[in-house]
């Protein structure tokens, strides 16, 4: 009975954790998975989004509502940042991956330092009524601080999937990394499409930030432990598949949670990397990727 109890709790925690990982990775599924831009700054942007939510929450605004409000400014910041990236790298003969990595790594350090300067290194959290209480289902206790953010992911994934498959702009976003000329001759500006997609990815980072800060307090460096994990989710899903991102996040979340419960919590951060390496070795196109 004790083992069953432990397994069920680990699965429930893993499921919710995984859903939150998927939300963290969703912006990267667009920038890296679809546009092939190695945006290692994504977790740092998520944390910046989380700080925006924390600061708004001080005035009593619900964190999820705050995140939705912050999406527009972040979308615009994303567009500006992409414009800088495109002008300094892509326009000068193709985005060199190593140079782009350096740029985004630098950007993530700048974001972290800016947060330290502005808010210090203290842990910050949001105050909402449901943090601290749990939903009890038989053996399983589900804390609301995991359940609420975990429930956001399927909604966001569904909306994003609709956008990418049902709208003209969505089709262009999916086409642009594969063949810019295909987009041009369809009468759509490929540069504007990439800028817009990067803006959406940045806006999604705020939602992920809200989810993360509801689960627990954050400091300016809280994005770092997620860098490897979000890339693992995107690669395991298969580059650019949005519903696949949710499934991949859940697989990694459950695997981590089981390792935490039955081996040792200190092994957990290695799980995502192990899965990433196994994916690259055994099925480089990912679980749901169509290949190229």
């Amino acid at each position: 009975m004790v083992v069953l109890d432990l397994v069920l709790n680990a699965l429930a925690t893993g499921l919710m954790l995984g859903s939150i990982y998927a939300l963290l990775a969703l912006g990267l599924a667009i920038t890296f998975g679809i546009l092939h831009i190695p945006n290692v700054a994504h977790p740092a942007i998520v944390i910046a989004g989380a700080y925006a939510v924390v600061m708004t929450n001080r005035y009593g605004v619900d964190p999820v509502l705050a995140a939705v409000l912050w999406m527009i400014p972040f979308y615009m910041l994303g567009i500006l940042f992409y414009e800088f990236y495109a002008r300094s790298f892509e326009s000068r003969g193709g985005g060199n991956t190593l140079q782009s990595l350096t740029l985004f790594f630098g950007a993530s350090l700048v974001i972290e330092v800016a947060l330290v300067v502005a808010y210090g290194t203290d842990l910050r959290s949001v105050s909402v009524g449901y943090v601290g209480s749990s939903l009890r289902l038989g053996f399983v206790a589900i804390p609301y601080r995991f359940l609420i953010p975990a429930l956001i992911t399927p909604v966001v994934v569904f909306l994003l999937w609709l956008y990418l498959t049902r709208t003209n702009v969505g089709l262009a976003i999916r086409a642009v990394a594969h063949d810019e000329r295909a987009v041009s001759v369809s009468g759509v500006n490929p540069a504007a499409i990439k800028r817009h997609a990067f803006g959406i990815a940045t806006a999604l980072a705020v939602i992920a930030g809200a989810a993360l800060v509801i689960t627990g307090p954050i400091d300016p460096f809280a994005g770092r432990i997620h860098i490897g994990r979000v890339f693992a989710v995107v690669v395991l899903a298969g580059m650019g598949t949005i519903p696949g991102t949710l499934a991949a996040g859940i697989i990694i979340g459950i695997a981590e949670s089981l390792v935490m419960s039955f081996m040792s919590p200190s092994w957990a951060p290695g799980v995502a990397f192990a899965i990433l390496l196994a994916t690259l070795a055994l099925k480089p196109t990912g679980l749901f990727g169509a290949g190229r």
Binding site: L171, H178, D179
Partner: peptide, 19 residues
Amino acid sequence: RLAPNLTVEENLMLAGGSG
């Protein structure tokens, strides 16, 4: 120069849905 990752109809819709 088609979009290889889009379906036949999606390629057509992309061109037809703008301008």
